[in-house]
Simulated assay, not measured.
Amino acid sequence: MLNTETPSTRHPDLDTYATPALLDAFIDDQTAAVAAVKAALPQLAAAVDAALPRIRAGGRLLYAGAGTSGRLGVLDSVELHPTFSWPRERAVAVIAGGEGAMFVAVEGAEDDRAQGAADLAALNPGPNDVALLLAASGGTPYVLGAIEAARAAGALTIGFANNPGAPVTAQAEIGITLDTGPEVISGSTRLKAGTSQKIALNTFSSALMVKLNKVYGNLMVDLKATNAKLVKRALALTVRASGASEADAQAALAQCDHHVKTALVMLKRGVDAAQARALLDAADGSVSRALSA
């Protein structure tokens, strides 16, 4: 029996717990998710380093999964645009059962290997693309089909699974095992198995974005200011990173469509928006290098 399906021996009387003890059991069990990702750090690092040159060459991040894993892939792909101004067309996710499966479980869709291959192939993967294949069990047919299609196209394949020796990690070029063990509620991989996948995806994609110069220091300076909250955040980040007054920061942001990177270079180098953009382009988007050029 798979680790993720094996009944936990820690809480055999879970259904009798008082509310505080019940909640404590769930929360305490989640700590295993962090430990599992930490244990996979060497493989995650290898994945980032292998993905980076492909993404720099114009490749895309392609996600494929089923159920909770599929939804986590969609979530990671969607959040890269507002957080890092990552082009939507360069982070694309497919999920077993189609877009509707984000909201309503499509039973049996995960068992269709041919559909997984077809859905991934429909994205027209190429050698610069990076496919992230997610399956808690590690043997989901839909995901295995997606791996086949991605590898056939020459894309880098990175497999995430929560059981050691899983086909998903074995068949991908880089396998990342997040060994979270039995769940508090037996077999419910939306619990710590899902949490570990969320952490791993956050870690992978955020590290990649840092390497792609989307961050200055530890500040999120390449966000898309698409709503009032983000406009305020852009202003606060600009003031903090530049040391300028709020009024000067606001004036700079107004001249560059609230792009924090550009505003920072404008303020710290004393140049206009066009010159700041040119400096950033010459520095491959790195604020640090644009400021020292």
Rank of each mutant, 00 (worst) to 15 (best):
K211C: 10
L156W: 03
G187C: 02
A118R: 13
L212H: 10
R190S: 08
E173R: 03
A121G: 06
L120F: 13
N128L: 06
N213W: 00
A131D: 03
L120W: 09
G145M: 09
E183W: 03
V143G: 04
I158H: 00
P127S: 14
L133P: 02
P127E: 14
T189P: 04
G139C: 06
A172L: 05
V106H: 12
A170E: 14
A155P: 01
D179E: 15
T177E: 15
E183A: 01
G194P: 02
N202G: 07
S137G: 04
S186K: 11
G154Y: 05
E148M: 07
Q115D: 13
T203M: 14
V106K: 14
S188C: 13
A114F: 07
A122C: 11
K192E: 14
L178D: 03
Y142G: 00
E173P: 01
A152L: 05
T195Q: 02
L133I: 13
I176V: 15
L132M: 14
K211Q: 15
A135D: 04
N202E: 10
R151A: 10
A153R: 10
E183Q: 10
P167I: 05
T180H: 03
G175Y: 00
L144C: 02
A200H: 00
T157Y: 00
A152P: 02
S186H: 02
Q115E: 14
D129T: 04
N128K: 14
V184L: 15
D179W: 09
A131S: 05
D112P: 01
L144V: 09
P182M: 11
R190H: 06
Q171E: 15
T169A: 08
P127N: 12
K192C: 11
I174S: 03
K211D: 11
Q171N: 15
S188D: 13
P182A: 10
K198E: 06
A207W: 06
A131F: 02
A166C: 00
G108D: 08
P164L: 09
P182W: 10
P182K: 06
L178I: 11
N162A: 15
Y216K: 11
V210F: 04
G138P: 01
A118F: 09
V143M: 12
G145C: 07
S196T: 07
R113L: 13
R113M: 12
A155I: 06
E183Y: 06
S188Y: 13
T169I: 10
V106G: 09
A170L: 12
K211G: 07
A170V: 07
A200R: 01
A153Q: 11
V168Q: 00
S186C: 10
S205D: 07
L208Y: 04
L208E: 03
N124A: 15
I174P: 01
D119C: 09
L133K: 04
A121T: 09
N202P: 08
V184T: 14
A150D: 07
K214A: 09
T180C: 03
G139D: 08
P182V: 13
G175S: 03
L133D: 03
G139L: 05
R151K: 15
